[in-house]
Write a protein that binds this DNA or RNA. Structure first.
Lengths: 336, 336
DNA sequence: TTGAAAGCGCTAACAG
DNA sequence: CTGTTAGCGCTTTCAA
């Protein structure tokens, strides 16, 4: 591995000049520039970004803290974020965390000297936001947000669930189950609000056995659905707080020999890729495809490049759009 | 942001001692260690890993060059790799590249000073392998490999396709289509070999209209399937070289109102998560779930920590296992 | 337009 | 067991 000093020697210039042709080419005389460029070529010189970072105190790297890629939503946002970052000349350091233990993230971020952080996994009361704010590391949340504010881009969650709930009620459903992650995440907290509200508006009961806020692991969801569908009285519709949950839910429903939507209507939220697949055709609530990740990334780079500042908090709420497909239908569309 | 010098001052020791309690705690007297630890605590000191990297010439970071996460296989391997790396104390820098342009990857890798590279996107004749070998950056390929050898973990691709082809022939299929990515990737090259061989063994014809090696973009695949199914004579089975291809293929088949498997049998390879979903139930060829990514990562860390060496090339071939589900059935199981 | 020199924050000899 | 010192490879004044 040759260094800029080697290049300098070969080109017969000072090391500082090598640095100049790399960072500010027009500040160096064309002839010398050529000599340096040639030397770089011959030595296959590649600048050491670590050394550069140490002096500039920037890394052109962002950290992405996301949920597991098993969840199509995170796979899609991660894909678009990494893509976009690359396009902007940034590298992406990823962490796919368990919901529960978003650990010494602060130390991780600080020690890695990333230029910014994109976070989709944060609890409502997570102290991380304040910590990051104190040390002024640009940070944008997407999908979820924290109580303490910060920059974020989220879906209008209450409306999203409200729409799908109204849709189901409009189809004649009264016995509606709600399957969600735990409410210490803003996503699930906000979505549950929308559900409750519409149910109340219509004077409908939220039966405790049909309303669950659980860990969003496959096992937990499977167990929950299985238990629910083994009771004597079944709901006629299940609203899932995410497509990922709905997909798992669908798996169990079909496994138990029930038909969708004839026996049970099913809906999700997020409009992930699989939701539109013809073998699935999940009724869901969408927001512009890939938008959330890209918008979040875009916002982050703005913060990084223009400098963060309290006044213009980036707080974007995407408008939801109900997408009716084949998993929801009129109640008792075939007798039961 | 306080540095180790600040800590040293506060604790009344030299900066080198601070470094010691971080890297070799037992080499420093318990009392002084405590003083230093306290100072670290009070100042909220977090070591600057950039500076450390500059001197140690290691980053505890690996690069992962993977295909798009839209493909479930890559989503699963990426998830497990990042997870595993984190568990080993490594960070992961990810790139989700387009198949075609795996660009100045070499410069990228060199300048980032990653400790190792995991690659699932490489053409058979890619010069990158030799380049990396020359500069001695530990590097493991998974899923795909290069002509020039190197370390890799792959599926026994010819056998994988052979098994599924025999399965279909056993079901009475004679008009079998084959849908694959381009053969400048080892995966597709090797899989096509298995297909050809078994077809020949059984004296079956590979019709050009039914045998395509195309870009694995959704659009290309959709167009191909659509064209194929609009011709007067239809195949009775389509073997797809990956689950991702099969999933897209299924989408179009269903859209065109054809039934699976009654009209057309369909199979994939990889046993991705969605393949087992009850709405899909894709017949496929599996290898231990998540194994490929994890094995590759494991191998890489071995190379990094024990040191690379020519003699013990890591070349692992996973045994395939046919998983028969609901998308394949006897030919003409209902009249056509 | 170029070179010399001072660090960035840390690790790792080498003395003591 | 601890302090002193010399870099790691680069950017960035400051002079020339």
């Amino acid at each position: 591995m040759s260094s800029s000093i080697d290049v300098a020697k070969k080109a017969g210039v000072s090391q500082a000049t090598v640095s100049r042709v790399l960072n500010n080419p027009q500040s160096v005389k064309p002839e010398t520039r050529m000599k340096v460029l040639q030397a770089i070529e011959q030595l296959q010189y590649v600048p050491n970004l670590i050394a550069r970072s140490l002096v500039t105190n920037t890394t052109r790297t962002i950290a992405l803290i996301s949920g597991s890629l098993q969840n199509g939503f995170f796979a899609e946002t991660t894909d678009s974020i990494v893509q976009f970052a690359k396009h902007k000349g940034y590298k992406t350091l990823v962490y796919f965390e368990d919901e529960n233990k978003v650990p010494d993230l602060f130390d991780l971020i600080m020690s890695s000297k990333v230029d910014g952080v994109l976070l989709s996994l944060i609890k409502l009361d997570d102290p991380l936001v304040e910590q990051l704010e104190r040390v002024k590391v640009p940070c944008v949340f997407f999908n979820r947000r924290s109580k303490s504010g910060g920059h974020y881009v989220v879906l209008d969650n209450p409306s999203a669930v409200a729409e799908v709930t109204r849709h189901l009620i409009g189809l004649g459903h009264r016995k509606i189950a709600y399957l969600s992650g735990k409410t210490d995440f803003s996503t699930f907290q906000e979505r549950s609000v929308g559900f409750k509200q519409v149910m109340q508006e219509h004077g409908l009961e939220m039966k405790p056995e049909w309303t669950s806020f659980i860990d969003t692991t496959t096992e937990e969801i499977e167990r929950m659905v299985f238990t629910m569908l083994n009771r004597p009285e079944l709901p006629t519709a299940i609203i899932c707080a995410t497509d990922a949950i709905a997909l798992i839910c669908m798996d169990i429903i079909l496994m138990m020999g029930l038909r969708i939507p004839e026996d049970i209507s099913l809906s999700g939220i997020d409009n992930t890729r699989m939701a539109s697949h013809r073998a699935v055709q999940l009724t869901t609530v969408g927001h512009q495809k890939f938008a959330m990740g890209t918008i979040a990334a875009e916002s982050l780079f703005e913060l990084i490049e223009k400098g963060d500042s309290e006044r213009n908090a980036i707080q974007i709420t995407l408008r939801p759009e109900l997408i009716v497909r084949k998993t929801t239908g009129p109640v008792n569309s075939s007798g039961s």
